[in-house]
Design a protein around this nucleic acid. Structure first.
Lengths: 229, 229
DNA sequence: TAACTTCGTGATAGGTTCTCACGCATGAAG
DNA sequence: CTTCATGCGTGAGAACCTATCACGAAGTTA
């Protein structure tokens, strides 16, 4: 994760680099991505605007760095939640993950929006970021896999199952992740995102629906389909 | 819908107003909301930048107008899909709605993002827009209601059901919409949005998952829960 | 015909990102 | 210990943006 700080210069450079990202994140937290201004960051750090360009080639590069960091932070949050619930029943562990996912998103809505919201056309995550988001998926799959347990998979393979099998193989998950777990893992994610996304968009608030109840309902639907209590 | 054009002046004004929105939509379609420039719109229409301010008080007002129109367009698309499938089995009608929902979103991703993506903090839809999005919900509820049919609802009312009952009553849907339909309607929406949102974010593409298969799986999950085939 | 309303224009203020040439200070090599 | 190169920050400036303002030219009504 952290390379050797090597020379003193690099250490300082890394320090200001982190400080820039900290300020950028704070700006985004109140005001959205549009409120990010390299000029303002420079001023807040006590230096001029153009100085930032010594550290980031462009405004978009700053955003991209935040995205990559964000993926890692989300995965870390999920791992921590899974670790905290490791002694509880598998079904409860899945529920804890669902709640943790929403909590993380709600705590920093604009960052979540940068990760899973609309992107400028043509934008594609760097491989580094794709790998990071993959970590979240692994956590989910482990938890759901524990619920499924050793039950044999009676589901007749449909189109989706076949694609998922290919997908899992290509990803190196290997055949030890059974099809049902795979399917439920992906669906759990899209369902969680559906609720969280609409909550952050303010639609659920407009309708006066409680997002937590929806999250719980969706978690329960996944657990039930996995054969859990 | 359309008021009387009254005087000739108003007719012309409405015409340029529409033209502005057309150009705005085109700009957003390629480049996202950040690419919207009133200056550029004016230039494209053969007039100066500030002239636009005779029609919209601010840049955000243009975006807001697009949002309101967008809600209506989505509802219209769903209604049209429902009408086209009116002679088919109820389960098929729900499926048609799911596909239509995704099709509409994919056809104009940035507009969809403006409707259901992250908003600038503090932003809240005008009542007009909330009413418009409500229309989409009604279409969904009708289709799902047809699948549920006259089956009695055996579901033990949980938290979510109780909240939905209050919600439905407050909305004037009346008690004729049964709890199960209500619940499935909301869940159908969040599930569809989950898949579509991740697709538009490019996450599914990164993972090489086919969104259509996911949509079908989710529609089937709703239909199954409704008791349909 | 005269008065009034509406529309579009150019100028302008203040903001942004981003490039550039310059000077300073730090760390490294001889 | 001295010299030199590298990296860092600055201010000026180009090109863009939103938004406001005073002004003149239309079209509309009395």
């Amino acid at each position: 994760m952290s390379d050797a700080p090597a020379t003193r210069r690099e250490r300082l450079r890394l320090q200001t680099l982190e400080e820039i990202k900290r300020h950028a994140l704070a700006q985004i937290a109140e005001g959205g991505t549009g409120a990010l201004s390299l000029n303002a960051i420079g001023k807040a750090m006590g230096m001029s605007g153009p100085a930032i360009y010594r550290y980031f080639p462009s405004r978009d590069a700053v955003l991209e760095a935040l995205v990559t960091d964000g993926y890692a932070a989300l995965t870390a949050a999920l791992e921590s939640a899974a670790a905290a619930a490791t002694r509880r029943a598998p079904a409860r562990r899945v529920e804890a993950l669902g709640v943790a996912y929403r909590d993380w998103a709600v705590a920093q809505p604009h960052l979540y929006g940068m990760l899973f919201g609309l992107r400028p056309t043509g934008y594609r995550d760097p491989d580094e970021a794709i790998a990071a988001v993959n970590g979240s998926m692994v956590v989910l799959l482990q938890a759901i896999g524990a619920v499924v347990g050793d039950r044999e998979a009676p589901a007749p393979a449909d189109h989706l199952d076949r694609e998922l099998a290919r997908w899992s193989a290509a990803r190196g998950y290997g055949p030890e992740v059974d099809p049902r777990t795979l399917r439920l893992g992906v669906l759990a994610w899209t369902r969680l995102h559906g609720v969280v996304g609409l909550e952050l968009a303010g639609v659920l608030a407009d309708m006066e629906l409680d997002p937590v109840l929806l999250i719980e309902a969706e978690v329960r639907s996944i657990v039930a389909a996995a054969g859990g209590s």
